[in-house]
Design a protein around this nucleic acid. Structure first.
Ligand SMILES: [Mg+2]
Length: 455
DNA sequence: AAGCTCACG
DNA sequence: ACGTACGTGAGCTTG
């Protein structure tokens, strides 16, 4: 961007083929490098650039070039099954509606559900009644709604994850080569495009079938390593809250411990429901808590949600001090920052518009946590990349999915690689609480089992 | 191109 | 009362 500005400032209208163009370009380029370098140094961002982001480029480039092997036959079988299911559901839905219409159109679906069948409008979008899954769940006693929910799930899998993915398999390598974007997100996370390999289904049994098509080549296995609760561990570290830190040092289930603290129970008397509520509270804390959001997360009244939040902050007082401090710092300095000093500017912390100001406050609370987690896994990627190279192993990094790395390893390297990856990830950047990494391996991305460290 | 919806962490 | 959970990318419809 700066280079382009200088080109225009310099009124360079030269043709790239013209003699002397390269000299002009180089002169401007050097000026821009000096300017950007100074700006980074002045803002304490130079080491983030030089020691983290710049060397990471090489690791990401190799990951993209290597790609991940995908079995088109598996995708094709799944696609055909989904096609058949969709045809049946389509007929069922038309019969229940008493007419044919485009089920993929929220507008046409809305006419059927809310006008023809007279179902209640529970939520609106800018353009009309919402037909989102959240709304349809509430209305799913009606048979057509249950069918539409199932249709949506199947249609999503087919269009996004079977047909489109198959088209992106390279005929030369038989692999899918994503692009990892290093300069897209506001928090420092990576993103992935063409295709996005950071949102492959995992939460439902049907969806997980897609992962079976991501395979290791003959004589290899996929190795997966994911951080356990990295964002909450960072919250414990960054806030200095000793109750939360001690919870992680004890190694017990963090959500159950939160439930015990918030609801005043012994750890062994926490029910599944209480644990689930505590999990929603922990999510809320990371997202920048609001009683409205928490209430929506666990079907409470706002007043009850507020009581839970108050109770949480009573038990974890330093977390409240920390989160309030982030908003204050954001207002005073204009930005919040992550472990690596990465900044996010939040001018709306001073907005007179309540919605904009609240959004900025939640962002101020979330960005240092989400962004520091991104810093840590990026550093871990560098360390894993270098350690594999130093050890002379053939194991390759394939994917990063925010708190998880996916690698491909020759069977005879599995033991060494699993230990190396776990060690580099857990010891990457010592915090006040331990970082814990789960390691799994298998023939494909679905059928993985825990790597047993006795092996 | 924008809006809605939904997949992931 | 305001009006939201944080961060992404992609497919589909609509205009
Ligand atoms: Mg995890």
């Amino acid at each position: 961007e700066s280079l382009c500005d200088h080109f225009h400032e310099s009124q360079t209208t030269m043709d790239p083929k013209e003699p002397g163009y390269q000299a002009v370009y180089l002169r401007i380029y050097k000026k821009v490098v000096a300017k950007v370098k100074k700006e980074l140094k002045d803002n304490d961002l130079w080491s983030l650039y030089e020691e983290l982001e710049l060397p990471l480029v090489t690791a990401l480039a190799e990951m993209e070039a290597h790609g991940i092997l995908v079995d088109p036959k598996k995708l094709s079988v799944i696609s055909q099954e989904l096609e058949a299911t969709m045809e049946k559901l389509t007929e069922t839905i038309y019969a229940e509606a008493g007419e044919e219409f485009n089920i993929n159109s929220p507008k046409q679906l809305g006419v059927i559900l809310f006008e023809k069948l007279g179902l209640p409008v529970l939520k609106r979008t800018k353009t009309g009644p919402s037909t989102s899954a959240e709304v349809l769940e509430e209305l799913s006693d009606h048979p057509i709604v249950a069918s539409v929910l199932e249709y949506r799930q199947v249609a999503k899998l087919k269009s996004t994850y079977t047909d489109s993915l198959a088209e992106l398999i390279s005929p030369e390598t038989k692999r899918i080569h994503t692009t990892f974007n290093q300069t897209v997100t506001a928090t420092g996370r990576l993103s992935s495009t063409h295709p996005n390999l950071q949102n492959i289904p995992v939460r439902t049994k049907e969806g997980r079938r897609i992962r079976e098509a991501f395979v290791a080549p003959e004589g290899h296995v996929l190795l997966m390593a994911d951080y356990s609760q990295i964002e909450l561990r960072l919250l414990a570290h960054l806030s200095g809250d000793q109750v939360l830190a001690e919870a992680f040092r004890s190694g017990q289930d963090i959500h159950a411990q939160t439930a015990a603290e918030v609801f005043g129970l012994d750890l062994d008397e926490v029910t599944d429901e209480e644990r689930s509520a505590a999990k929603a509270i922990n999510f809320g804390i990371i997202y920048g808590i609001s009683s409205f959001g928490l209430a929506k997360g666990i079907n409470l009244t706002r007043a009850q949600a507020q009581e839970y939040i108050d109770s949480y902050f009573l038990r974890y007082p330093m977390v409240k001090v920390y989160l309030d401090g982030l908003v204050e710092q954001g207002k005073k300095e204009g930005y919040v920052q992550t472990l690596s000093k990465r900044r996010r500017y939040l001018p709306n912390l001073k907005s007179r518009n309540y919605a904009l100001r609240s959004f900025a406050a939640r962002t101020a609370m979330n960005t240092p946590i989400q962004g520091s987690a991104a810093d840590i896994i990026k550093l871990a990627m560098l360390k894993v990349y270098r350690a594999l190279k130093d050890a002379g192993l053939k194991t390759r990094l394939l994917l990063q999915v925010h708190d998880e790395l996916v690698l491909e390893t020759p069977l005879d390297e599995l033991h060494l690689a699993a230990h190396l990856v776990k060690k580099q990830m857990e010891e990457v950047y010592p915090l006040d609480v331990p970082l814990k990494v789960g390691v799994f391996y298998g023939p494909n991305w679905r059928d993985v089992k825990s790597f047993d460290y006795e092996e």
